[in-house]
Simulated assay, not measured.
Amino acid sequence: MIGQGTARRPLLLALPGLALAAGARAQAWPARPVRIVVGFAPGGPSDTYARMLATELQAIWGQPVVVENRAGANGVIGTEAVARSAADGYTLLSTATNHTMNAAAYPRLPYDTVADFTAVCLTATAPTVLVIHPKLGATDLAGFVAHTKAHPGAVGYATSGAGGAGHFAGELFKRRAGLDMPHIPYRGTAPAVQDLLAGNVPASFATLTTVLVHIRSGGLRAIAVATRERVPPLPDTPTFEESGYPGFEANVWYGILAPAGLPEAITTRIAVDIQSIQARPAFRKALADQASLPATGGPAEFAALIRREVPQWQAVAHDAGITVD
């Protein structure tokens, strides 16, 4: 018995030392610049939120925080770059709902959507809104549905590209409402909005951030928001649920991921620092100016959201035939 107790003692003594070493590594981090990869071109919401956070995190961490745009394939190129990076806290990914949608829309991805990443925290949410060109004539969702059913195949909806949030929202709704409503994908948000404003395409399922200025100017008409409750920028625009489609939601979330295996102490540190920024009135106002709200999910909540959404969007993609080669 004495021999067994003696044999255990070095191991038991080593465990506190290991914990202290892990804590020391977290305290020493970051010792050099941190990179936040954005899988989209500059100017979009993922890029905007990353740059807003980078400025504040740089002040907290005392190290440069650099935003790097690696656009292409609906975020896949930048996401793959992060998946292949070292799990040391120096490479992060500013991502969005497209992360789980890509797992449904792409037959093959160069990474595992769940297993190859460490969920750090959610950063913001933005409503999806159905907007139409005023010449369409509809003033509410019932009128839009009636018009679209009366003109099968003639009322198309524009999005920023195949497999994106607007595409999934549009397919989800048109099946719910029984509509023959063609999807018209564009190469980016700007050309989609330009054609919508010109009346070349009658409708769009868009992130509110990208169309709010045109709704306020009268260039576009907001028909319904895909949120549980009405949103402050559009207090007079009803939700889909209020308009007769219970449970219909298609919000866009934004968040920070890291490569799989990021030490828990560093994951927690990044999440806590970001959440401290989210609590600041100035940051909340900046998000509100982008027609967005701060999200409050930490590592566990964000990881659970990703695991939950992948099969949900896979079911939608299967039913709607959404695929991106």
Score class of each variant (00 low, 15 high):
G3R: 15
L18V: 15
L18Q: 10
A19S: 08
L20K: 09
G23R: 12
G23C: 03
A31W: 14
V34R: 04
I36M: 14
F40C: 09
P42I: 03
G43C: 12
T48V: 14
Y49G: 04
L53R: 13
T55E: 12
W61E: 08
G62S: 12
Q63A: 02
V67L: 01
E68S: 12
I77K: 06
G78V: 15
T79G: 02
A87G: 14
Y90F: 08
T91K: 11
L92H: 11
N98W: 11
T100M: 12
M101F: 06
A103T: 05
A103K: 01
A104H: 04
R108S: 08
L109E: 09
P110F: 04
A115H: 06
A115V: 07
F117E: 09
A119L: 13
C121V: 15
T123P: 02
A126W: 02
A126F: 06
P127D: 10
L130R: 06
L130N: 11
V131M: 03
I132Y: 08
K135I: 11
T139R: 15
A142P: 06
F144L: 14
H147T: 15
P152H: 03
P152W: 03
V155C: 03
A158F: 03
A158L: 01
A158I: 01
G161H: 09
F168T: 00
A169E: 14
G170M: 01
G170K: 13
L172T: 15
F173H: 10
R176P: 00
A177Y: 08
L179K: 02
D180G: 00
D180R: 06
Y186Q: 01
V193S: 05
L197M: 13
A198T: 14
P202C: 05
L208H: 01
V213T: 09
V213A: 13
G218H: 02
G219V: 08
A222M: 10
I223T: 04
I223E: 00
R230K: 14
T237E: 01
T239E: 02
S243A: 10
S243K: 05
G244C: 14
L262G: 03
E264L: 15
R269E: 05
A271I: 11
S276Y: 03
I277R: 15
A286G: 02
Q290L: 14
P294L: 04
P294H: 00
P294Q: 10
G298A: 09
P299Y: 08
E301N: 04
A303V: 08
L305S: 13
L305C: 04
R308E: 11
A315E: 09
A315P: 02
I322T: 05
